[in-house]
Design a binder for these strands. Structure first.
Length: 201
DNA sequence: GAGTAGATCCTCT
DNA sequence: GAGGATCTACTCA
């Protein structure tokens, strides 16, 4: 299990980084309570030219300020007043690239995830979808701006590899308001994995 | 199984 | 004062 280096996040190709995040392991360690999950679904948000992004057109507000930070930090925001959505900020300072984590396969700390989500037993819904996985991992908007190379929150490579054939892409979900940009194939997921959101094929 | 309403609150206009 | 990068439960069939 090897923590991913900061240089990984500071590259310019957000689509490439998104694809490479598939199969990696997200780790949270709040006060010694460790939960981990393998990333099986992501969406890329490509900076100021991407209508679906909060940072479209260089828009800069208190909420999305973290997107303009240097790559390698978390961007967490509240959606629909209920769900905390966890993003990874990439690229350099002032370039608001981000990657939304949409699906995780639980690995360690499943009991803790059940407590956080109030569920009775492990099933697909525990960490499927951005709202669910943030809850299971204990991620809150207060973590927005946290480093992804610290001891509490980071992404690791445990040697797991995915065949190219097992990676699929599709348009992003829930961004119909973005017009033409809603059609861009910026969503990547592991084919057939039960923790990928949306309808199974 | 498919479709829809309701929850719920912070941020921006 | 509106609406959102969502989820669940409930209806109807």
């Amino acid at each position: 299990m090897k923590k991913i280096n900061i240089d990984f996040y500071r590259r310019d190709n957000v689509l490439l980084i998104a694809r490479e995040l598939l199969g990696k392991v997200l780790v949270t360690n709040w006060n010694g309570v460790i939960t981990t999950g393998r990333i099986v679904e992501v969406e890329a948000y490509n900076g100021i030219i991407d209508k679906a992004s909060h940072a479209f057109g260089g828009r800069r507000t208190r909420r999305n300020e973290m997107m303009y930070a240097e790559g390698g930090v978390a961007y967490v925001f509240l959606c629909y007043g209920i769900h905390h959505l966890f993003n990874i900020v990439t690229h350099n300072k002032q370039i608001p690239h981000a990657i939304l984590i949409r699906g995780l396969e639980p690995l360690l700390g499943i009991d803790e995830m059940l407590v956080r989500t109030g569920k009775k037993q492990l099933d697909n819904s525990l960490t499927r979808g951005p709202g669910n996985l943030s809850k299971a991992m204990g991620l809150l908007t207060s973590h927005s701006g946290s480093s992804l190379v610290g001891n509490e929150l980071f992404i690791a490579d445990d040697g797991f590899t995915i065949r190219k054939n097992d990676i699929a892409s599709s348009p992003r979900i829930g961004v119909a308001y973005a017009g033409k940009d809603a059609l861009l194939p910026y969503r990547f997921y592991i084919k057939g994995n039960p923790f990928v959101s949306g309808k199974p094929k």
